[in-house]
Amino acid sequence: MPRDTRTAPLALIAAGGTGGHMFPAQALAELLLAEGWRVKLSTDDRGARYAGGFPDAVERSIVRSATTARGGILGKLTAPMKIGAGVLSARAAFRRDRPGVVIGFGGYPTIPALSAAVTLGLPRMIHEQNGVMGRVNRLFAGRVQRIACGTWPTDLPGGATGIHTGNPVRQAVLDHAAAPYAPPGDGVLHLLVIGGSQGARVLSDVVPAAIAALPGDMRARLRVSHQARAEDVARVTAAYADAGIAADVQPFFTDVPERLAQAQLVVSRSGASSLADITVIGRPAILIPFAAATGDHQTANAQALAEAGAALIHPESVLDAPGLTRDIRAILNDPARAAQMAGAALSLARPDAARRLYDLVTEIAR
């Protein structure tokens, strides 16, 4: 018989408009629904673009919010009014359909929902994906019942205590968890290049040149999947073609888990969700932290993988094609080392992160 949802508890998930916030939110939503909860997602227009993978049963609401950290003078002046309107709207919605718990995943679109939860005394918590807590989560760290941390250790505000849950991954990633790793050999070599949900210009500038400088026999066996910004796709595609390298270049891959499972090596930014996917599936990586990330949190994210021997870090400030060529060649020429790196990545995985987070949700909802 179909489940009667009229009396099911409601979880309100608030998440900002990037894949880094939305993917772990989606993972929790999938589990909440499976456990009999109703789920609503509160985000902004940008976040809605990354909500396509959420189950149809999740009700979406677009909130008005803003940030005073970016934009011109007019944007900074009008931001408080937009945030205030969003808070009032969230309070009204919560009174009509009272959530049993509100979970924030970071980003300024979470401000209205978390503010409304604070003023109405609703159970509330936040999940921080990165090794350095973001601005909005830092703002609410002292006003929630639980702080779940995806990366450990996490730099938290003074007096705040975090609980290491790991970063939840989507079911599509879990479907490939611990997929057997095929070390690089004499056959086809699959290389995946991912730059976060927006792609990354620096990866488009440097990575094709680095791969083009690999030995001819290695280039002939390479199959590259490269995620690039839409404006960079044509030139990146041409760069690979000029070097005689088979490459699939797209602005966004909908099948990243499958490509990860197939890959012998991953070249990636070190956003928290990307690293969660890499460790759950278990693949060697070369990581290029985004230099402008708030608090340099991508370097903090990458550190645990580097210390475990799962990844090499190339700081963006010194990134160049020759250094990248050297490390790609070294890993793909050493099957034993590549396999050891894959195993080290897998040792850091938290495939049960969504369940750990769900346990905290139900704990405070009681």
Rank of each mutant, 00 (worst) to 15 (best):
M1G: 14
R3M: 14
R6E: 14
P9G: 10
P9F: 07
G16D: 10
G16M: 05
H21I: 08
M22L: 15
A27C: 07
E30L: 02
L33D: 08
T43M: 00
D44L: 09
R49V: 11
A51E: 01
S61V: 14
T68V: 15
G72E: 08
G72Y: 08
I73R: 09
K76H: 03
A79H: 11
P80R: 13
I83R: 04
V87G: 09
V101T: 10
G106H: 09
Y108E: 11
A116G: 14
V118P: 00
L122H: 01
P123A: 12
H127D: 02
G131S: 15
R138W: 06
A141G: 03
V144S: 09
I147S: 10
I147K: 08
G150A: 05
T151F: 01
W152H: 14
D155I: 00
L156K: 03
L156P: 13
G159W: 01
A160I: 01
A160V: 11
A160F: 01
T161C: 09
V169T: 12
R170H: 04
A172D: 15
A172Y: 01
D175M: 10
D175K: 14
D175R: 15
H176T: 10
I194E: 06
G195C: 03
G195N: 05
A200K: 06
L203S: 02
V206C: 04
P208I: 04
M218S: 03
T237I: 01
Y240K: 04
G244C: 07
A247Q: 05
P251V: 11
F253A: 12
A261Y: 06
A276M: 03
T279D: 11
T279E: 12
R283Y: 12
A285T: 13
F290A: 13
A291Y: 06
T294M: 14
T294W: 06
G295K: 02
H297F: 10
Q298M: 00
Q298D: 13
N301K: 09
E307V: 09
A308H: 07
A308L: 02
A308M: 09
G309R: 07
A311M: 13
L312A: 13
I313W: 05
P315R: 13
V318F: 00
D320P: 04
A321M: 03
T325H: 12
N333H: 14
A339M: 11
Q340K: 15
L348G: 08
L348F: 09
R350P: 06
A353F: 00
A354T: 00
V361K: 00
V361N: 00
E363M: 10
E363L: 11
I364R: 01
I364F: 08
R366F: 01
R366I: 03
